[in-house]
Design a protein around this nucleic acid. Structure first.
Lengths: 145, 145
DNA sequence: TTCATTGCAAACCCTTTGCAAACCT
DNA sequence: AGGTTTGCAAAGGGTTTGCAATGAA
């Protein structure tokens, strides 16, 4: 059993299309939409893979913690490979899609059951995504000016 | 010229459907989807208002700063009335949709042009939404246990 | 053989758009 | 009258689902 396949899909039955999808996801180092993942798969394996298969594979990989939804772009979900197990967030480069981990600005290390606030609200979950430019893209942009 | 209408749509030409929509938005004290807003409009004015009109009105109200997109629920945008002009975020009650303002956990008072990070990334924008339970819903839930 | 997985196509949902009719001003 | 706004219906984009055919174990 291939280690990558295992990471991505656990003990699920092997399938070539899914394997190709996992490989493509691994090669895309940054954040990507399902569409971009599809393009990456097609670039390496001619056996395209149907849209439905892509979405099903992404859902599986997310379940197995191989991928994580890190935001969205133009109404499409953004995914990225993420090995970290502790609570954190991501910063996504608007230029190239590269991602980096970001500590939780709420100062929460593990997703807590609940945290109280002065106004009486109890926070049970939160969504934080940072967008910006990675060092490379920031440099490129500065040059352009 | 009605003050509410003015707030919601600025100096735009008056229209009864839009006025009804603004009234409904005002009555829904918390966060709501366009669908829920439609229901609220229908509840007070039988003249339903087409989906397109709803979306167009919401877009206008957002432009005029009367509404703000505060998150999403089940793939639909969540909107809430918001008078504040400075940079802030929202906490949305999962129970009743009520919202409250939340200070920016990144410690940013005004949306900045850019903020640097140790890893070289430059943050240009960020999305933060907190979800949880308002005091009332939290109390109800505690009773249930 | 047997059951999971694929692929296609159609369905779905939310949202947007084109356009003639209705409506403010 | 003249330009806006409405409402309908159709298009659009992303995502999901039903189902027969394929493929791994």
């Amino acid at each position: 059993m291939d280690a990558l396949y295992q990471q991505a899909f656990g003990g699920a039955r092997f399938s070539e299309p899914r394997f190709a999808i996992a490989r493509a996801a691994q090669r895309l180092s940054g954040a990507f939409t399902v569409d971009e993942l599809a393009a990456a798969v097609r670039a390496q394996d001619c056996s395209a893979g149907a849209t439905a298969t892509l979405y099903r594979a992404v859902a599986l990989m997310e379940q197995h913690g191989f991928l994580e939804r890190v935001g969205e772009r133009d109404g499409s979900g953004l995914y990225a490979q993420c090995a970290a197990r502790s609570h954190h967030h991501h910063i996504v480069c608007d230029g190239c899609g590269k991602t980096a981990h970001a500590e939780c600005p709420l100062g929460i290390a593990e997703e807590p059951p609940a945290a109280g606030r002065a106004d009486g609200f109890v926070i049970t979950r939160h969504e934080v995504t940072l967008y910006g430019l990675c060092p490379d893209c920031a440099a490129t942009q500065t040059e352009a000016c």
